[in-house]
Design a protein around this nucleic acid. Structure first.
Length: 816
DNA sequence: ATCTCCCGCCATATG
DNA sequence: CATATGGCGGGAGAT
């Protein structure tokens, strides 16, 4: 049988999309399937029309339906009388859309449970699938390959795959994220954007060479397929091809999302990176096009899995297709602890349950020798990178999963806080010295700062430095969400603008739902400024400075720019020794950090012991929980990279959850108070503040003595600016919403934060800290300012929320 | 015109 | 060798 007889039947059945969710069907009796004939059913026609009318609706609908199997199950019952429909002539061809890979994927996915019970494995027989779904085999491969890249299925033998469902997803994503980080994708992204940016200005010059060269060193981008040992067992047969493009490409694509700060990746950037950054400027247009095609294929599948969602990034260049990650947040895998170099078979296929626990991931290296990659010249590089890759062998935590999250967090907090603190101090000192005179200098010196590449255009500011920002409003909804960006980007954009106005960068605007007016940039800026102005309290002396248009602003911008440029240069130079790239940085503004914490156990306090600041430690112990968004702990490594703000030009809005206020009291702390009062920035105090902020004890900006900008900012009322996006989201999300306090706003910068502060069982009534807190949190007129302490049921551990501020920028993203 | 991306040829891998 | 896989890119539908 060469080609399953599909075409005869093809046309009509395509329309039937979801079938009622079924249980882990191992081998469904094939006959049942024929759903068809629908086109002639009134209902089906209607559906079809609707769908046709609005793709959005359609997809949404599909999802919904898929999710709740409850929806009409009946319709499936159709019988096999496809033969007689005499009107094939008119046979409305399924319209391209009906045949889309995404739709097909939905159908495919509908056949299997997301979480198949470990006990019973479900197998996928390609012949059956192709027949039942009425598609060409080729298409199924596309789907399966992507699923395989996520370890949702694995190839057993010819025609046979095993369905794993989403069980492995967490581990896979974690592994991918890790690899992505090791690959320095963030930097690559920035590099690409930068290059792109420069291109605009003139014919490319040697600049590119530089780039390329610097880039070239980072060859290791070519890694092979990342596996989860437990899953891949049977792979022997297929191993050789594991590295094949679609699979690997899919993994890389996912990695890009996982490492990017706003988890948005434009196709263009992805394509460039995936093509192989080593290809310096091969103006290979066709290659690029092909890559894009593939990415669309992958994206369609990922979209069906609801891991990503299409959006459009608007930048000055125009609208560019992009996708944003809507999948689960990936915990940073702090524990590299056990690197097991599981050479080949990590675990036998045997029990499924086991593998899940002891997931380890390893990279397979196809090269191994004899392989002749006839087609993929690029693969050759693999060989080069093997060495590097070897290191990539990873293992997943053997430890109980549950604990891991909180543990991560705790460790992370404890471990990093101190270092941060120190770093901060140093930084600030340095800063103090040099900054005053010439800010630009500052960054340079810092060893611990990491070089921030500018991301001129492009949507995503991905700087690893920023702690994995969580998107507050759940992205899921597609509503706009706040994206925490690095200020660095901002300046980047501005870099070339003579005026140095702080504009909301093109690259950075994210509007939730398709908000179209793109020109927004300028517009927004202006508006924001104006609005702000109107609303802002008189108080801010600094306000003037902050203003985008003001001189001070300009200067600071300039500084940034300059410094950045410098650092970039350095970066390039140093690139070779890539190591430092991660930990050194220069001019960054601190962006905010969103540190949602899950409540954790106190177990780790030991860690803090070494820290001198007992006070801090004590505070730290508290567990934080973020009811809202979930946890987004960042790996210590990431934290280190975080930079402290040299100049805080940023922010403006603080979003608090009602409960957060309650937390404020907790802060009461000598440090805090002192800080608040202190006008003169004291390095150490500021450092402390910084640390506290990170920890979530203090809302960012509060301490600000160190931070000039925030310092005096009066609290103004809710931010309208954010409202559009956040508003809806919040509502939806429910809890999060907030009272957003606006400190000062530039439209584009906002501090959003949600950090639950722990309230020891007895919520302390706001007392001393009040002053600070009050002030800080007060919502003018805001009704629901009430802090609701979540005194929580299980007691001790719970916490109310506090807030950390994160400067965030909006990217303009429109979704379809 | 650009964005999407389906279709299916045909090289390769596999058994 | 017959098949199973799956690069790849033309070119057409969707916008």
């Amino acid at each position: 049988l060469k080609t399953p007889l599909k075409q005869a039947a093809t046309s009509q059945l395509v329309l039937t999309e979801r079938q009622p969710d079924c249980q882990p069907l191992t081998t469904p009796p094939k006959p049942k399937e024929t759903p068809p004939a629908d086109p002639w059913t009134p209902t089906s026609n209607l559906k079809m029309l609707i769908r046709a009318a609005s793709p959005e609706i359609r997809s949404r609908e599909q999802r919904r339906q898929l999710s709740d199997s409850s929806s009409d199950v009946l319709q499936t019952k159709h019988c096999l009388q496809e033969h007689l429909l005499g009107d094939e002539y008119e046979k409305s061809q399924p319209s391209r859309k009906e045949k889309s890979l995404g739709l097909l994927c939905h159908k495919f996915l509908a056949r299997y449970p997301d979480y198949p019970s470990p006990s019973q494995k479900s197998y996928i027989c390609l012949d059956e699938v192709t027949e039942e779904l009425h598609v060409e085999r080729r298409r199924i491969y596309d789907i399966v390959n992507v699923l395989e890249s996520l370890h949702m299925v694995s190839h057993l033998a010819r025609n046979r795959y095993i369905w794993h469902g989403r069980h492995n997803l967490p581990q896979t994503l974690q592994a991918l994220k890790k690899v992505g980080e090791e690959n320095k994708y963030i930097q690559q992204i920035q590099m690409i954007k930068k290059r792109e940016y420069e291109h605009e200005f003139d014919a490319d010059s040697e600049r590119n060479e530089e780039m390329a060269s610097s880039f070239g060193s980072s060859e290791q981008s070519e890694m092979s397929f990342v596996e989860l040992p437990g899953v891949e067992f049977r792979a022997a047969s297929v191993n050789g091809r594991k590295y094949k493009s679609l699979r690997v490409m899919s993994q890389k694509f996912v990695m890009l999302f996982l490492v990017s700060t706003p988890q948005i990746v434009s196709l263009e950037v992805a394509a460039k990176i995936l093509i192989g950054e080593d290809q310096l400027e091969d103006l290979d247009k066709s290659k690029f096009k092909t890559k894009i095609r593939r990415l669309y294929d992958i994206a369609n599948v990922l979209s069906s899995l609801k891991l990503i969602e299409k959006v459009h990034v608007t930048e000055e260049r125009g609208r560019k297709p992009a996708f944003k990650w809507t999948g689960p947040k990936v915990l940073p895998n702090t524990q590299d602890t056990k690197l097991e170099a599981t050479s080949t078979t990590c675990s036998p296929p045997i029990s499924e349950s086991i593998p899940s626990k002891e997931q380890c991931s390893k990279a397979l290296f196809p090269s191994k020798g004899k392989q002749n990659f006839t087609r993929h010249s690029s693969l050759i590089k693999l060989v080069k990178s093997i060495e590097n890759d070897r290191r990539k062998i990873q293992s997943a935590p053997t430890s109980p999963v549950k604990i891991s999250a909180s543990r991560y967090l705790l460790n992370f907090l404890l471990e990093t806080s101190f270092s941060l603190f120190l770093s901060q101090m140093k930084a600030e000192e340095m800063q103090m010295k040099s900054a005053l005179s010439s800010p630009e200098v500052v960054p340079k010196a810092e060893p611990f700062q990491q070089p921030a590449l500018s991301q001129p255009l492009g949507v995503c500011p991905a700087s690893h430095s920023s702690v994995s920002p969580v998107i507050l409003p759940h992205p899921q909804s597609g509503v706009s969400y706040a994206i925490y960006l690095h200020p660095s980007q901002a300046h980047t954009v501005t870099t070339y603008s003579p005026g140095f106005m702080l504009q909301p960068l093109p690259c950075a605007n994210v509007t939730g739902i398709k908000s179209n007016n793109s020109k927004v940039l300028n517009k927004i800026t202006t508006e924001g400024g104006d609005t702000q102005r109107a609303t802002d309290e008189p108080t801010k002396p600094l306000a003037a400075e902050e203003r985008p248009d003001t001189k001070s602003e300009t200067s600071s911008q300039r500084c940034l720019k300059r410094s950045q440029a410098l650092q970039e240069n350095n970066l390039i130079k140093r690139r070779k020794s890539d190591e430092e790239s991660l930990d050194t940085s220069s001019t960054f503004f601190p962006s905010g950090y969103l540190i949602p914490l899950t409540h954790c156990t106190h177990g780790n306090k030991a860690e803090c012991s070494n820290k001198e600041k007992a006070g801090v430690c004590s505070l730290q112990h508290t567990a934080y929980s973020s009811p809202i968004t979930g946890v987004i702990p960042m790996p210590a490594s990431e934290l280190k990279t975080v930079n402290i703000p040299a100049f805080h030009i940023t922010p403006l809005n603080i979003m608090l959850s009602p409960t957060s206020i309650a937390a404020a009291p907790v802060l009461s702390n000598s440090c805090l108070n002192s800080s608040s009062t202190t006008s003169a920035p004291n390095p150490s105090s500021s450092a402390l503040n910084f640390m506290l902020q990170h920890i979530g004890l203090i809302p960012a900006g509060v301490q600000v003595p160190a931070n000039p900008v925030l310092q005096h900012v009066p609290v103004s009322s809710q931010s309208e600016n954010i409202s559009h996006s956040s508003g809806s989201t919040n509502v939806q999300e429910g809890k999060v919403s907030k009272n957003t306090l606006q400190l000062n706003s530039w439209v584009e910068w906002e501090y959003g934060a949600v950090i639950p502060l722990q309230q020891p069982s007895a919520p302390k009534e706001p007392q001393e800290p009040q002053a600070v807190t009050e002030n800080f949190f007060r919502t003018p007129g805001g009704p629901n300012t009430e802090p609701s302490l979540s005194a929580n049921s299980d007691g001790t551990q719970r916490i109310s929320q506090g807030t950390l501020c994160i400067p965030q920028r909006k990217l303009e993203v429109s979704e379809d």
